[in-house]
Write a protein that binds this DNA or RNA. Sequence first.
DNA 1: CCGGATTTGTACGTATGTATG
DNA 2: CCATACATACGTACAAATCCG
Lengths: 242, 242
Amino acid sequence: MPAQKYVEIYRELKEMIEEGRYPAETCIPTEYALVDRYKCSRNTIRRAIHQLQEIGYVQSIHGKGVVVIYRKDYDHVQQTTDRIESSTAYYSRRNTRTEVQVLELRHYRAGEQETAMGFRKDQRLCFVKRLRFVEGTADAIECAWFPEEKVKGITTEIAQNSIYEYIGGVLGQKIISSKRQITVDVATEDDLRYLDPAPANCLGVITSRSFNADGAMIEYSQMRKVPQTFVYSTIARQQKLK
Amino acid sequence: MPAQKYVEIYRELKEMIEEGRYPAETCIPTEYALVDRYKCSRNTIRRAIHQLQEIGYVQSIHGKGVVVIYRKDYDHVQQTTDRIESSTAYYSRRNTRTEVQVLELRHYRAGEQETAMGFRKDQRLCFVKRLRFVEGTADAIECAWFPEEKVKGITTEIAQNSIYEYIGGVLGQKIISSKRQITVDVATEDDLRYLDPAPANCLGVITSRSFNADGAMIEYSQMRKVPQTFVYSTIARQQKLK
DNA sequence: CCGGATTTGTACGTATGTATG
DNA sequence: CCATACATACGTACAAATCCG
């Protein structure tokens, strides 16, 4: 129920920018002009603008104004990959057909390797390995480790559908933030049993550690994807602070 | 001269978290407790906390508190690559020896290909191709395109050192935000003349479009890096808004 | 080059809503 | 049901950067 003012203002401005009402390299109305238009406080306007900065639509410049950097002709196709959502949700957002096949589901206790992932030694874990098909062709191998104490009762059936939905819906957990690393790995023999990266012999790899509202790591995952479809989009902004 | 209160509070809390004073999965003091400690307004505290969220140190949870997700034992080595800085700055931050060799510097006008990058047709461009060495071995090919109208007078000497320093120092321009895509490319013949990704036959590729304070794109760049040293770190946070 | 107007940045204070325990 | 703690929203004041006459 986001009847929050700043969200509405954010959405309206976002839409206007997308429509080209405020073209790139021009300024949107000043904060005070927007205060006037929306009959709200300046703080509220500033929050909306802050959100627009987060998604790379504008950047505010001290003493000058809020400049649009969204380019109608260029940015409308691009979407940031840099958000938290399941692969299933990601593909459905793009109207792409996708299925998964569970290759392995195993319960065991954390050893050396798993402590390097960030788990405690001997912590009970559930390991799931899945093969994802996109538009009918094998696209990625998705491995995930869950601590049993936080994420109980994963079954093959659940893994076949959306694990995230299970975590969110049934367990009432939510992933709030996710620390990721993107690397390039040479495809292993096992990778090549399922995926065909040719002519490449490598895969794009996204390794994530995901945290719930308690600050607990509830997933460690690694997605190994063929280069043909691999792309990770993100926006880097000036770091003012160290 | 950041004597700004929220920056000081941010830094102090950051340091305490790094030292383990507030361990992972626990809460830092409440907002009001911090208001009391720092003798400031709640807004100021909230800004500091917001910054800590940006760097993936904490998560604030409605009705509960602000939970630490920074792990002393794990995160102290990791640094986000997801910031705006030159490769030179990046490596010096890590005490790593690096040099560049200018392979090509050319001035020409934008054609078909360059409009796909986001330049205007016939716009005057400066193209720079450099080879970067890290600890003495060839590590990456860095190609960059600059619009002449914004970034004038790049010479081989400048390219040999830091182009960013030139842009910032001499031209007084500043890159405020940067939209990036990370992909995996099969190494071309040209790549292999300079780089040795073996046993891989691919490179990690970071493509960036960078914007200045006017919202103008002042750089399009592509960094092609050997997999051995390629890693891109980033933090994805919950998207509340669409 | 100066100075005033404009515009964003920082900081304070207050009140009320809403999720958690 | 209540207390706690974060979320939203309003308002005000002054600082600092930019712009323009």
